[in-house]
């Protein structure tokens, strides 16, 4: 018995909501980054579900590109965090206020 696509879409929406909440709640920069990964994975799950629903391979190709972009994003983001920590040992987003007037 097949699981209806709606169940996957609801699961993806809930995962996206949890990721968005985490991004707003947490103040540790690394954990905020992990929450972005959660949201990206929710979107990947939606893409795969629609690919199956519409019988279109394009959705799965999109997930492939999302994976590549996520990898590049993690590399650049983490090197920004390392460079930031090197200037001052700041673990939370509140400590990044160098541009504050």
């Amino acid at each position: 018995m097949n699981v209806p696509s709606a169940w996957y879409l609801i699961l993806a929406a809930v995962l996206f909501g949890i990721g968005a909440t985490g991004l707003l709640v947490r103040r540790n920069v690394l954990v905020m980054f992990m929450c972005i990964e959660l949201m990206l994975n929710a979107v990947n799950l939606t893409f795969v579900t629609f690919a199956r629903m519409l019988n279109d391979v394009g959705g799965q190709v999109d997930v492939f590109f999302v994976l590549v972009v996520a990898a590049a994003e993690v590399v650049v983001g983490l090197s920004i965090i390392v460079a930031m920590f090197r200037r001052r040992a700041a673990a939370t987003a509140d400590d990044i206020h160098g541009l504050k007037g």
Binding site: I10, A13, V14, F16, G17, I18, A20, T21, G22, L24, V25
Partner: peptide, 13 residues
């Protein structure tokens, strides 16, 4: 933040 996250979830659904 929790309120905004819930609003986002309800909007998507």
């Amino acid at each position: 933040a929790i309120l905004l996250g819930l609003v986002a979830l309800v909007e998507i659904l």
